[in-house]
Design a protein around this nucleic acid. Structure first.
Lengths: 222, 222
DNA sequence: CCTCACAAAATTGTCGACAATCATACTATC
DNA sequence: GATAGTATGATTGTCGACAATTTTGTGAGG
């Protein structure tokens, strides 16, 4: 399990705002709301059975998380996708992840390496299994490892923001191509290098790894 | 002038939300609201003469911009500052700006170089002059040049987010140490290298430049 | 003096109604 | 027939009031 440390976690989503946020996020990232689709506040609020005030605040939070876009008097829409955005997303990912590895490199403990193996195993087991939402989450979790180890709060928040976009494109990919992952074999090499002792090789591999992922997802856009 | 292309720009701040956002932002970034200070909604709404609905939405946008923080039932506070945050901010800046230069390098046109000189002159003239808010804006504008040339939307939004934090720390610095800039002589060298033809030298200089800025701002925190 | 319980005040969260704006369909005019 | 103007409906923006929660204040008991 992932969080055995304390049996209890603080109750989350205490406000309607937070609950709404989670639900809309799940719908979008689950691929049930197609990119570009308009969200009508009155319809959503009656469907979720909350008033528009917390709904609007929740949607506004999702805007700055990059999941939605909004224009005054025009309302909210699911963030549209484009080839350019995808290109930028992956170039950005590449850069941040290389930076993360630079930071994490001297900090990797045995515990951390075992943790990476856990995430790897967890990811591989689901790939043959077939739960789309879970598969995406584990893919993200696998890549989050280096950011956890890097122990850089600001970098992490920027990765979280990027990862939302990654989720959108991945669910798009899964909807088009079924359940096989976007990274293929390179994931295994990624893990080996991450446990090894050559940072340059890791950096080089990230470029390859990302461009593999990019090409794979790109096919979903045409 | 900066934007001669089209004589008109779209009317901005059409909603109260946008106006509130701008005003609160100015207050915080102008250093008139100290980090950690609590913002009481009822007080703010009566002061700004708007209801709490648009006010709350505006504040929530500022949260995801990194200027404020919020907790359920606890309200909004100006983002607190810490040495760790500052360290992370500058390491992040260093990384993103190096990336930006890599992208911008082959795209630099003669126009762009002239633009850089304009921003440089504009910055230098204000440094001896003494309007704090303007000085900060021009400092940011100078560093934004490379992001403009890089022409990478996603990278730009991340820089915008970072630049908000930079503004906070700079206004803190100005409040403590008066109006001289935080980068000193290195700005001139920065400009020269940015116009030159050695990307590696530019990258190396960014490290120096940033650590200079970091050290300078750091003194405001103790 | 300290701590706990409890009441009161202050503050945030939520609601329903109304105003301002936008999108659509229709008409008049050329 | 095309286009501009106009009325209508749909949608977002704003407001004031009330509910839920936290914070502050007070006093009893040790």
């Amino acid at each position: 399990m992932n969080i055995p440390a304390s049996k209890f976690r603080p109750v989350e989503d205490r406000t309607l705002r937070a609950q709404v946020k989670r639900q809309v996020m799940d719908q979008v990232l689950g691929g049930h709301l197609e990119p570009g689709k308009k969200l009508v506040e009155t319809a959503l609020s009656s469907e979720l059975e909350v008033s528009r005030a917390p709904l609007r605040e929740a949607l506004r939070e999702l805007v700055d998380q990059g999941i939605l876009v909004s224009e005054p008097y025009k309302g909210f829409r699911v963030r549209p996708v484009s080839q350019r955005d995808l290109t930028e997303l992956y170039s950005m990912r590449t850069e941040l992840e290389k930076f993360a590895f630079s930071l994490a490199w001297p900090k990797r403990s045995d515990e951390d390496l075992a943790d990476l193996d856990d995430r790897y195993t967890s990811l591989m087991s689901i790939r043959t299994n077939g739960d789309q939402a879970k598969a995406i989450e584990r893919e993200i979790a696998f890549h989050s490892w280096v950011y956890d180890v890097a122990d850089h709060q600001l970098l992490r928040t920027h990765w979280v923001r990027l990862s939302q976009l990654v989720r959108i494109y991945m669910s798009l990919h899964h909807n088009v191509h079924g359940f096989h992952g976007v990274f293929g074999q390179t994931t295994t090499e990624y893990r080996e290098l991450a446990k090894g002792d050559c940072l340059d090789a890791m950096h080089a591999h990230i470029e390859v790894h990302m461009s593999q992922g990019f090409d794979s997802v790109l096919t979903s856009l045409k």
